[in-house]
Amino acid sequence: MTSTVERSRRRKNRGPQDLRSEEELVAERRKGRVGLYLIIPGMAVLALFFAAPVMVLLGMSLYARPPGAEIGEFVPALEFGNYATVVGAYWEVFLRSFLFALIATVAALLIGYPMAYLVAVRLRGRQLMQGILLVLLIAPFFSSFILRTQAWKQILSDEGPVVTVLRAIAILPADGHLTATAFAVVCGLTYNFLPFMMLPIYANLDRLDTNLLEASGDLYASPLTTFFKVTLPLSMPGVFAGTLLTFIPAAGDYVNAALLGNNRDTAMIGQIIDSRFFKVVDYPGASALSFILMVLILALVMIYIKRFGTKELF
């Protein structure tokens, strides 16, 4: 809400001749075409790079394979059975993908929030330290996604340090291993998407007014109470953006599952789409899976926004 003073000041800036009311002006602005023209480039980009591919995807997902067809040969049709087939075959994989993505998102939040808090709030004013820490946190992500994941394979390998220690202290059985397990896949997801969690939270906490924390202390709130009653609620837009930016790519990821998973109980939907598209050359099936994935993610995100959403994202 703008104050009356402010409003009258704004009106003054418009010049003396302009005596129309605020409401009239708003109405005029609504009628104006300028806004419409301004969104044309954005809409064009969306149409070309989002709507068109989605329509192609949707169309392809309904293609049929004529009997005796050559590999990769499909004809336009309305084969809704494609959807039934892939859902029947892969519903468990969808569930698993969302479960893994959810666990990875929660883990990334638990790790990323304290890191963001440390840099943004505790080290406020010490710009050198902040800079160094931020660079250290981001630097690993300058290298390739695949290479980073490969590195985790080495770290978690049977002869590697982690497994050796865990076996020695009997947390892992003597023949136990970490690579090729669901645990490794979730670790990989968490690690690879951590910056997407941390940076929005950091950006948000960086603007946190520390006077509020002091005030909370003056009112006899313990540091813990201050955190839960002041800091956390104020940083919710950052948390909200971070969770979305982590969950969405994690749900569709296939590199982590392919490199760190096994062939029994870690397959994620991205892997299935890849194998249907390239190995089996089932373009309609792969398209149907992609389309379902998109719709499901969209639905989950909508529910999430409705339930927890804040108006201000960043």
């Binding site: 062939n263 892997q271 890849d274 194998s275 190995k279 050359v281």
Partner: peptide, 18 residues
């Protein structure tokens, strides 16, 4: 044949969980 290739590929991919 194209038919066999598609079927066998599909079965193989399913049995390796992908």
């Amino acid at each position: 044949s194209a038919e066999e290739e598609t079927n066998f590929n599909s079965q193989f991919q399913t049995s390796i969980g992908a």
